[in-house]
Amino acid sequence: MKRVRQLASRAYERLLEWELSGTPSHVAVIQDGNRRYARNNGDDATDGHRAGAQTTEQVLEWCQEVGVDELTLYTFSTENFDRPEEENEALFDLLCEKLREFADADRVHDSEVRIRAIGETHRLPDRVREAVEYAERRTAGYDQLHLNIALAYGGRAELLSAARDVAREVDEGALDPDAIDVETVEERLYRGPSRDVDLIVRTGGDERTSNFLPWHANGNEAAVYFCTPYWPEFRKVDFLRSIRTYEHREESWRKTRARRALALVKALGDAEVGEARRVLSRFKDALPSAERQAIEEETDAELEHPAD
C-alpha cells in the first residue's frame, strides 16, 4: 500500500505540474509546526527544527524547478525571543550550521542563489550575525534566485521603525511632508525583499499571516495558501497546490480588473476612460466568452455610433 500511495502521489505531482501555467515571482513561507511535529514524534524541539531545515532545502529546489525568482522564509520572529533560552540557543546553533552549509554548497553556487537576512539582525547572537555575514558575502554576486531569511523579524516593528524615521526627518526639516510617497517608506524598511510578495504559504494548520511582510504582501494583495501539514511534512504536492492557489487568485484579479474597466467604459465619456480602455484591452481575455462577446458588441456599437 505504501508503494501504491507513493506512485499515486508522484502521478498527482505530474498532473499538477502539467496544469500549472504561471508562476509567482516571489513566494513567502511561514514555516510553522516544527515544534509540534517534534512533540508528536516524542522528540525535542531542536529535532523538529532540524527536520524543518531539510524541508527548506527541498522547497528551494522546487522554487528553482518552477521558476520562482525570490523566496522569503519566516525563520525567527521577534516574538520568538520569548521562547525558552535553551531552545533558542539550540536553534541559533542550527541556523549558524545551515547558513554556512548553504553558503558553501555547490548547488547554491551552481544555481547562483543570493542569500540575505532581513529583520532586526542586530538583536541576534554574535555567532549568528557572523554566519549571516558569511552567507551574504559568499553569495553577494548572484542574482538568479534571491533567498531571504527573516531573522528577528516583525512586520509591525518594521513599519513602526520606518514611520519613526520619516517623522524624525520631517521634524528635522530634512524631508518635506508633501514629498512623502511609497518610495519614501520603502527606502526606510528593512533591507530585504526586492519584489512584492505574490504568494504567502503557511503550514501547520493556522490560518493567519502572523505579521509577516505586511508592506510587501498585503499591499500587493498577495494570494495566501494555508495547509495542515507541519513544516517538516510539507511535500511537493503541497507546494504545487499553493502555486495553483496563486494562479486562481491571479485569474480572479484579472477578471476583476477587466470588469471594473468595462464598467468605466460604459459609464464615462471617451475623454475620461483612456486608461480603462487600455486595462480592458489587456485583461479582456481573462473574462468568460460571454462577457468577451459583450465587450466586442459594445466596441462595434461605439464604432457605428461614436459619442458626440
Rank of each mutant, 00 (worst) to 15 (best):
K2I: 14
R10V: 12
Y12T: 07
P24W: 04
A28E: 09
I30G: 04
D32E: 11
D32H: 04
A45M: 05
R50E: 12
Q54F: 07
T55P: 07
T56V: 14
T56K: 01
E57K: 15
E57A: 14
V59K: 08
L60I: 11
C63S: 07
G67T: 09
G67D: 06
D69F: 07
T72C: 09
L73D: 09
Y74S: 02
F76R: 03
F76E: 05
S77K: 04
S77C: 08
N80K: 02
P84N: 08
E87C: 03
N88D: 00
N88T: 06
L91Y: 01
L91I: 04
F92P: 01
A103Q: 09
A105W: 08
S111L: 09
R114D: 10
A117D: 07
T121A: 06
H122F: 11
A131P: 03
E133D: 15
E136C: 08
E136F: 08
R137K: 15
T139Q: 12
T139A: 10
A140M: 06
A140H: 10
D143H: 12
L145T: 06
A157D: 13
L160R: 08
A162Y: 03
A163W: 05
A167E: 03
V170F: 01
D176I: 04
D178I: 10
D178Q: 15
E186R: 15
D196L: 06
G205F: 02
S210I: 13
P214D: 14
H216W: 14
E221Q: 14
C227P: 01
W231S: 05
E233H: 02
R235I: 03
K236Y: 09
D238V: 00
F239I: 00
S242V: 01
T245N: 04
E250M: 09
E251Q: 10
W253F: 13
R254S: 08
R259G: 01
V265F: 01
V265G: 00
K266F: 00
K266S: 03
K266V: 04
K266C: 04
K266E: 12
R278I: 02
S289C: 04
T299Y: 06
H305E: 07
H305Q: 07
A307H: 02
D308K: 00
